[in-house]
Design a protein around this nucleic acid. Structure first.
Length: 414
RNA sequence: GCCCGGAUGGGGUAGUGGUUAUCCUCUGGGACUGUGGAUCCCAGGAGCCGGGUUCGAAUCCCGGUCCGGGCCCCA
């Protein structure tokens, strides 16, 4: 009986892994160039960590299970909450701000679709300890640079959930959160129905609807000022610095985010070519630390949908030089020895383990895209040399082992 | 959670109730024990699962599973 892959999961073949690793390493490099350092948290956590504040949306779609002691656990659906848990547990006395990044798999029990899987990878950062607009600017700038570096065509939208939240504060937390969720869904009808149900006044209702429709350049802020008394300095400062950095974006005050813990600036990036799953990055500022029993630590972060990014970017993995050491029958041990010598120089070498004829070994070398074939037989061993064939040019030379290695290394540098 | 469409060797496919399930590709071996991409030969490998209809099911019906797309939601 054949065992199938679980629904919503994927296998990655070597070609695809090479591309994924290339994308991953670029993300790491850029995050590290901003001073972010990698962390890792457990694949599963206490269910409570996610039910506390992440919002219904995510809780309904988690992989939840009980272990043998009856503990309620969940596979992580995202990493912000775990990172903040870790921060509270281990890092509360480290010098602020803290700059962390992660690259890890997450799990959500949803209907799989293009760009949406039950196991998926997120690359994200958290900048912990600052509530300045500068922190938001750095994080948005970093996300922007990563997506730019990968050659993605994308659109960046920036909003601020504080505006709506302050408008809704008279309604109390629960009702406000429910409204935020409806806003996030873009469900205007449901939003109106709900506001009618709970008796929201006409004036407030109109303001909410006006705010969530505000999209565009700085003019949006002026329009918002007409509607609500709110301190827009933070957003204005952020806007100024982003402009100076050449980060292209537009305001969208209707961004509400699916996760409940955002408090201030929020942002999302959309790429083309992914159908409904076009959001490749989302983030914003939040305060989770005190909720998890730690000191107050205003933070900003983002998560990039790694799989989605990989699907639309056309990054190519660099191909390493590959050498096939080919031996005649009875000379296998010589082939193994010479292969090891070449490997010591950091090169990739494959030898035959099928006991194949020279012809088949050549054919195999060709099929796997080897750059050189090194042929070992009685003639070579007797003279203490190797035969090196350039698979592309078909040029063949008799060289000492040292000369052969020099040839390969020069190819690597070129 | 909802809607639509699929599922035949590893990959791509033909086959609308009736021999041994088609073809391409692939994989292994050989022709060919000192030279790759070509050619030829041989071999390997399949109707998602469970139930039903039928003398007989890959084919028709039902359920499940999985895949693709959309809604919803999100990364």
């Amino acid at each position: 009986m054949k065992i199938e892959r679980p629904r919503g999961t994927r296998d990655f073949l070597p070609g695809e892994m090479e591309k994924r690793r290339e994308v991953e390493s670029r993300m790491r490099k850029i995050a590290e160039s901003f001073g972010y350092r990698e962390i890792a948290t457990p694949t599963f956590e206490h269910l409570e960590l996610f039910t506390l504040k992440s919002g219904e949306g995510i809780v309904d779609e988690m992989y939840v299970f009980a272990d043998k002691s009856g503990r309620e656990l969940a596979l992580r659906p995202e990493l912000t909450a775990p990172v903040m848990r870790m921060f509270v547990n281990e890092c509360s006395v480290m010098p602020r701000p803290l700059r962390f990044y992660y690259f890890a798999n997450c799990f959500r029990y949803e209907r799989p679709q293009k760009g949406r899987y039950r196991e998926f990878w997120q690359f994200g950062v958290e900048l912990i300890g600052s509530d300045s607009y500068l922190a938001d600017a750095e994080v948005i700038n970093l996300a922007y640079q990563i997506l730019e570096n990968l050659g993605l065509e994308f659109e960046l939208q920036v909003g601020h959930v504080g505006i709506l939240r302050s408008l809704l504060s008279p309604l109390g937390n629960d009702k406000a959160s429910k409204i935020m969720r409806l806003v996030d869904k873009g469900d205007e009808e449901g939003l109106l129905d709900y506001m009618d149900d709970i008796g929201v006044g006409q004036d407030l209702k109109e303001k909410v609807l006006s705010i969530i429709d505000l999209k565009g350049d700085e003019g949006v802020i002026d329009e918002a000022k007409e509607l609500i008394s709110f301190d827009f300095t933070h957003l204005e400062n952020l806007s100024g610095i982003l402009h100076e950095l050449g980060v292209e974006f537009e305001f969208n005050l209707g961004i509400a985010r699916g996760l409940d813990y955002y408090t201030g600036v929020v942002f999302e990036c959309y790429a083309e070519g992914l159908g409904a799953q076009k959001q490749v990055c989302g983030g914003g500022s939040y305060e989770l630390s005190s909720l998890f029993g730690g000191p107050k630590a205003p933070s900003t972060g983002f998560a990039i949908g790694f799989d989605r990014v990989c699907e639309v970017c056309n990054v190519k993995a660099k191909k390493d030089v590959t050498i096939a050491v080919i031996s005649l029958r009875g000379f296998e041990s010589h082939a193994f020895r010479i292969a090891n010598r070449i490997r010591e120089k950091g090169l990739r070498v494959v030898v035959d383990v099928m006991g194949r004829s020279l012809k088949k070994q050549m054919s195999f070398a060709s099929e796997i895209g080897a750059d050189y074939a090194v042929i070992i037989g009685p003639d070579e061993i007797e003279k203490g040399v190797v035969t090196v064939k350039n698979m592309e040019t078909q040029e063949q030379k008799t060289l000492s082992e040292e000369e052969a290695i020099t040839t390969f290394l020069s190819r690597t540098k070129g």
